[in-house]
Design a protein around this nucleic acid. Structure first.
Lengths: 325, 325
DNA sequence: ATAATTTATGAAATGCGTTTCAATGCAATA
DNA sequence: TATTGCATTGAAACGCATTTCATAAATTAT
């Protein structure tokens, strides 16, 4: 495979001139420019991008850390990141972690070794302290509220979102409310839990731990929840469901097992995925695509030096009333 | 940032020895090994991975070309690729093309410039001829039947899958059958169309072009199909639906608009996504996760020199009977 | 006409780890 | 004791493009 020196030799110019031509810099005589392009074509030359990366000290790749690719919540975010990245000539390196700290660390290491110019963390298990150790290696954007930790972020106000759902249910007369969540740890989950408890406190009601369903991620988990509900003596009358997928599962498996929504169980879910519309589920719209886009924009602002301080952006949510309450 | 030469100097050894230590090669005295690690720690050294890539001539990154990340069909494949890649220490670079030939070409170019060691093409628009120009630059695996084009592939037999669905519908007495598809071009779609026509021919029935619904990708497209069906004088009694998502949309929007499945319309869909189970949709299971895994395995076989010729693997499908027919 | 710019161009340094090759030191075999 | 062979180690070459710096030539400004 030809390299830039061979091109230089064949074109009768220096490597510097070749580089200038290849990168469309000014100050090259037209004849030399021609000669270089001719040589490039003759030798079927292509840059070795790894040499470029080494020389430039950057790769135009940003890493995306997320637990699962195959989940609408995360692939929406990735979609958003991807769209913006494309517009700016960046590529995406995917790190599917399954919430494994070891894998998260490996991904972070990619920032140190300059495999990626920056990192967007869609969700994580690793601690903020640990993350901070990597801040000096390049920009990191978190998709969660980073209040109190001095890191950049774009986030959805999950407290507000849950509060919105809770108050809606309460206004509709519900008092026995539970919720379904993907996991109980993590900033986003903790914010939601706080809203849940605060909302209940507002109506002088104590939370019931058995009405909190953990590990609810996909449709099939809805079936599990339905089963659990059916075997309960004292059931909640309403559920906040942190994913439209799970909500869909609850509605559909509920139908088959005699747990009708909203007759026997009211549901407010989150995401506003098309499935919620199709099932008439009242949901809180979460701007996931925008969050991905914004995340890239923030990181890009760091690259172009537009931003040097930590940025924190909060995206608005809104409740979409349908027929599941 | 420290480099390997500084480590060598501090440790009082040659860079070759440092490299040996860093890469866990044998033949280094224990004392020197210690000295190197100590220097590494003292200078807080990390390899510059771009230099490694340049020197080794490979990146341990494989590119994944796909039209949309945010679609269960593709994210299942990516999930499979990702799982296997992880096991072998490879990373994934994502190229979301939206079926734009220009973007596909850019992704292919990444193989030439050695940004990626290999490429998995989940779906494409670009021609086989064009693709072949890049074969010399590294292994390329297609997720489609590549009969007649001498390229490696892992594929689902979409002809067989559609034929399975058609014969099932026909056995149930249906004669007026249409289908919904993501796009009409592409190998996979053409194979499906062929099966559709062959199956109809077998029962001496002529295909009805107006019963073929193009651009059916997501739940919302199901609503469109329902609407179109309702406005038809002469409706099909059954539909093959190339995506469980769309099928779900048809079932759910049909319910609201008085088009009951299976009473007014029988449906056999494809993928066997959890949503199909939840809705009781009869579907043909497509091993998408396995396809992704297998795709990576094939490409990996090329890397380790296990395979030098084109491989073509066909994965089996099976019909899962539920209640939509 | 002279000074001040601007245009052009190449040599050489830079970014940095891997790998080959030759050489030296030691131990085991003949 | 001589020889074969493995264990160790470093110098130097290699992969390759970018960028700085110095220089030279061509313009433009004064």
């Amino acid at each position: 495979m030809a390299n830039i020196r061979e091109i230089a030799k064949l074109a009768g110019v220096s490597v510097a001139t070749v580089s200038r031509v290849l990168n469309h810099y000014p100050y090259v005589k037209e004849e030399k420019r021609q000669a270089v392009w001719k040589a490039v074509e003759k030798l079927n030359y292509t840059k070795n991008i790894n040499a470029v990366h080494l020389a430039k000290g950057k790769t135009s790749i940003i890493g995306v850390i997320l637990p699962y690719v195959n989940h609408p919540y995360f692939s929406s975010i990735v979609d958003g990141i991807s769209q913006e990245a494309l517009r700016h000539g960046y590529h995406l390196l995917l790190f599917q972690t399954n919430y494994d700290v070891q894998k998260e660390l490996e991904a972070l290491e990619m920032l140190r070794v300059k495999q990626v110019d920056g990192l967007i963390i869609c969700s994580r298990t690793i601690s903020w302290e640990m993350l901070k150790l990597y801040q000096e290696d390049g920009p990191i954007i978190l998709c969660e509220d980073t209040t109190g930790c001095e890191m950049s972020s774009v986030s959805i106000d999950h407290y507000e979102a849950f509060m919105l759902g809770m108050n809606y249910l309460i206004a509709k007369g519900h008092r026995k409310i539970g919720y379904c969540i993907g996991r109980t740890s993590g900033t986003n989950s903790e914010r939601r839990d706080a809203a849940y408890r605060d909302a209940l406190q507002n109506i002088d009601t104590v939370p019931r731990e058995e009405w909190i369903f953990d590990r609810c991620l996909e449709i099939a988990d809805g079936a599990r929840v339905v089963k659990a509900l059916l075997s309960m003596e004292d059931k909640p009358t309403a559920l906040l469901v942190a994913s439209d997928q799970v909500a869909a599962g609850i509605v559909l498996w509920g139908q088959k097992n005699g747990l009708q929504v909203p007759e026997n169980l009211a549901i407010v879910s989150f995401d506003n995925h098309p499935i919620a519309e199709a099932l008439g589920i009242t949901t809180v719209d979460l701007p996931l695509l925008s969050m991905g886009q914004k995340a890239f924009q923030l990181i890009h602002d760091c690259f172009i030096g537009k931003t040097t301080t930590n940025q924190n952006e909060q995206l608005p949510v809104r409740l979409i009333e349908r027929f599941s309450v």
